[in-house]
Design a protein around this nucleic acid. Structure first.
Lengths: 212, 212
DNA sequence: TGTTATTGTGGACACTGTACACAATGGAAG
DNA sequence: CTTCCATTGTGTACAGTGTCCACAATAACA
């Protein structure tokens, strides 16, 4: 019995092939990054002929784009988790600062916990519109970029950040945190111990907070 | 005449195939990024059979690694150019600050002028050792990372940066600048005008300087 | 001059993305 | 309930890729 083993279906129709392909693509991205998102392997895992994918995705790039959006949603979830775990804090200023830090910390935690998904999330060139695409939003309905923007708005409301310095601030913060993520997962900082990572993460977030 | 046109050689030996392959790989990376560095196309451009490459590179990954090193060297050159263009400045503190800015500015200028090479330069996962690999050094014999480290050392010498804050500072600075580079070349900031880019670059470098 | 290590060639295989024609099916129209 | 058709999955095919193997041409050395 060298036939396709378990994932054999009895009906001609698959039922929910788009979803199955997306899920398979996500699994491939999880260990292997964007390059590992391969059409034929995804269809194989879905128990379907290679060309079946073309009924639901224009081409490999289209599948990758969906996987990318799902990865961004997962990142948003990670950030929301970090925010939710925050203890209630009294002075609004302190609270706003803690929330900004949490966004950065959640971002970096996700990068290290799911490097494959993380790299996939930023593998397709996107423009300003796509950073607010609902497909990239997490449970709370906000994309990673929007969560960051929210945190910065709170900083302004709390009087910590000058309103004049608010425009564009998300790009400064994002740059720093994203850059560190890259260094940590496949740059020269890969070999650091957990403590060293935590230390440098903390310093970077401090730098951002101070330098905004 | 549908034969291979011009790049036909008369001798059996090529002469300097490793170099020719590297050069072809660099051209491919320049427009197309790391994924465009394709063995067969490189050999085609060198006017040689596909398998000839295996006499000089273990596999595609090995060629890509060489291309990556060359791209880092080009980045180092760009940074050195920026440093060389700096007017002589009197107070050592001011001078050191200007030089750190120049490192960041050269980095970002290169990212935008040669996005393909830039992405290729950071496409292979590297560890701490490889960031000082002489193959990645520019004309002055220093890698991009070393040029950054030098600038930070000058800041300490000039009394601008506390020696206690020096260790690890290159990672903070690099994170921010590299992250912005990614945003500018295939992130949401791609569509910005030249002025907007300059403005955000300036703000980011300011943030780094202040927050180190 | 003859031997040998180096370098390039030719053919082959397994994989990929993708196009085209075809088959099975489920749901709507009669 | 039957008929028809748009939707969805299949089969075959082609070009392109990385890589392996056996072989051929050559340069350098004995």
């Amino acid at each position: 019995m060298l036939k396709p083993e378990t994932p054999h279906r009895t009906t001609y129709r698959h039922g929910d092939l788009p979803h199955a392909l997306l899920e398979a693509g996500l699994a491939l991205a999880r260990d292997g990054g964007p390059d590992a998102v391969v059409l034929r392997e995804a269809t194989r895992r879905a128990g379907v002929a290679p060309n079946a994918a073309y009924r639901h995705f224009a081409d490999r790039q289209a599948l990758l784009q969906s996987v990318c959006a799902a990865a961004q949603a997962a990142l948003a979830d990670a950030i929301e988790d970090e925010l939710a775990a925050l203890p209630p804090t009294r002075p609004a200023a302190k609270r706003a600062r803690a929330r900004l830090r949490a966004v950065g910390a959640g971002y970096l935690r996700f990068a290290q916990a799911e490097p494959g998904l993380f790299r996939t999330a930023f593998s397709v060139s996107d423009d300003l519109d796509s950073s607010t695409d609902p497909a990239r939003a997490g449970r709370g309905g906000r994309t990673p970029f929007q969560l960051l923007a929210d945190a910065l708005d709170e900083l302004v409301d709390a009087g910590v950040l000058l309103a004049a310095r608010r425009p564009g601030a998300e790009f400064l913060a994002w740059s720093s945190v994203h850059g560190l993520g890259m260094l940590l997962i496949d740059g020269p900082l890969r070999a650091l111990t957990r403590e060293q990572r935590a230390a440098i993460t903390s310093r970077l977030l401090e730098m951002v907070e101070q330098g905004l």
